[in-house]
Write a protein that binds this DNA or RNA. Sequence first.
DNA 1: GTGACCACCTGGCCGC
DNA 2: TGCGGCCAGGTGGTCA
Length: 276
Amino acid sequence: MPELPEVETVRKTLEPLLINHKITNIRIFLNKIVKNPDILTFKSKIVGQTIHKVERKAKLIIFVLDDDVLLSHLRMEGKYYYQKKDEKINWKHVLLVLDLDNDYQLRYHDTRRFGTFHLQNKKTYQSLKPYTNIGPEPWNELVTVNYLKEKWNNKKQKVKTALLDQNIISGLGNIYADEVLFAAKVHPETPVNKLSSEDLNAIISNAIKILKLSIELGGSTIATYTSSLGIKGTFQNHLQVHTRVNQPCFICQNIIKKIKVNNRGTYFCSYCQTKK
DNA sequence: GTGACCACCTGGCCGC
DNA sequence: TGCGGCCAGGTGGTCA
């Protein structure tokens, strides 16, 4: 599933292919993926606009057009394919197709059909959802020990759950939250108000380190996820705990455990990551 | 206001 | 072989 590094890989792959190309037609095969505006307005507004940039905020891809922005969230299994208009594919899971002013199409493919699209005005989208639901990324200067203390001081939420809350720190999903907590030596069920300054500092610094390394390596290719054009990341070869249940910890050789934290599969080493 | 839980959705896997 | 049930997980909504 795409998390921040995988989405960045998709963005980097798509941008050079799409820049300065006009959208000449759009087909939507599942109306519910368009969250706003309504389908007719969405279609009529997007056709004729040129793609000027492909940006990203956390896991949200932002196609910057003439007047509007197209905000795309891949959720669990969304993928983009840039293919010739006459290239045959299995259309079963293609939910949206943008025709471009060349021989190519941008095809959005999503087997679980969780992905979402918003078309919003370029001048105002930064003050609207879903953009406003996304907090700063870990390397943003706003993310400091004091920032997390302020956000988490009176909360008893488990740190694993808190790291998945995109309002506080954005970009971490289930895989990277496990990896960050292992690197920071913090048990995933630790209440956030029990975290010390050292814990918070370790969480921030390891989130930056791990996400940046994963971006360099093209993200993780786990189970069903590959980026557009079939590019595969290699960060999964660096995973310390995620998916490694019943295997020895690379640090202490204890067995990696798997538990559910708020119904999310969570991998950790009970020796390296002690409970407080 | 907070935290836990559920729905969305489909493919893969496992046990019978 | 085929079927049923479970699991995976990002996000938004609901409920206690």
